[in-house]
Design a protein around this nucleic acid. Structure first.
Lengths: 152, 152
DNA sequence: TGACTCATGTCAGTATTTTGACATACATTG
DNA sequence: CAATGTATGTCAAAATACTGACATGAGTCA
């Protein structure tokens, strides 16, 4: 016996999942009235900040496979929110761009998402927020290295 | 202009998603050799710590719908990892239990998952870990209240 | 007692995501 | 220059999760 499992109340992994799940749910709630999914929004936001990102780069930035991002991008192109050149200028990479229409739909979504983030951070001091920043980046970095072939 | 979007490098929401995605990927990597998915593992761990949990309670604990958990539970019952009474003693609730076989498969998974969590926490002081605990719970609590009908 | 609300287990259909695979283009290395 | 490795875009198939719906049982309240 002696505490065999991982205590879910204490486990930082579980808390991380719980917080992320709550954030996603809150984002879905505010984005749904705009007819937008979380991945949908993430894609537009990424393109606004880094115009010319390729499908694969967008996929990595939104934490989905490039196949999933591709079907989303095709829908966004069809709806006129995003443009991609018909053929690559170099390699196979097709740099995507936000259209004015895409920029407009992003604006409303950004406001909604920001309100969620503000609510999430409510009750945290500035110091706690920078602490959270540092801690999360530490977790990310630690997980990135040593994918599977750890020691030995 | 003037910083219209949400800076992804700085956004705690984005960092939270990145950390959670990294954790999930790392867990999938170590659980795959055991033929187990993350939800699969979560279900067994929940049952080990709180025997008699119902399907709906397990679903909430693993952050999936009760329908998804139900198909998983049926598979686990079929494989002999979990048992549920044929009919409810009270209401419709069917309390689930881990079988010795289920407990055994959980043991290996717990070791694997614990190694991931240890790696994630590597480089963090004890104080930082308790700080992370407090901060994550603050986020969870803030997101839980005011689901959608916030102010006005 | 009866009407109402809420939560549960479960079935069916839909939607979304991932896995697998392929051809192609560039970079590296000998 | 040829061979190899890596990365991309894309198609098809499989797995997974979700939405919608229904019947049932318990609790509440008048």
């Amino acid at each position: 016996m002696s505490q065999d499992g991982i205590d879910l109340e204490t486990s930082l992994g579980y808390l991380l999942k719980e917080a992320s799940s709550g954030l996603r749910a809150a984002m879905e709630t505010v984005l749904r009235p705009l007819g937008m999914s979380v991945t949908h929004y993430s894609c537009l936001e990424l393109l606004a900040q880094r115009p010319g990102l390729s499908n694969s780069e967008l996929a990595r930035g939104a934490f989905v496979t490039r196949q999933s991002m591709n079907v989303l991008l095709q829908a966004l192109e069809r709806d006129g929110d995003v443009t991609r050149p018909a053929e690559a200028r170099v390699g196979k990479v097709l740099p995507a761009q936000l259209t004015p229409r895409g920029r407009r739909s992003l604006e409303k979504a950004t406001v909604a998402v920001r309100s969620v983030e503000v609510r999430m951070l409510g009750g945290m001091t500035q110091e706690e927020q920078s602490g959270a920043h540092r801690i999360l980046q530490s977790m990310i970095h630690s997980l990135r290295n040593d994918g599977e072939s750890g020691s030995r």
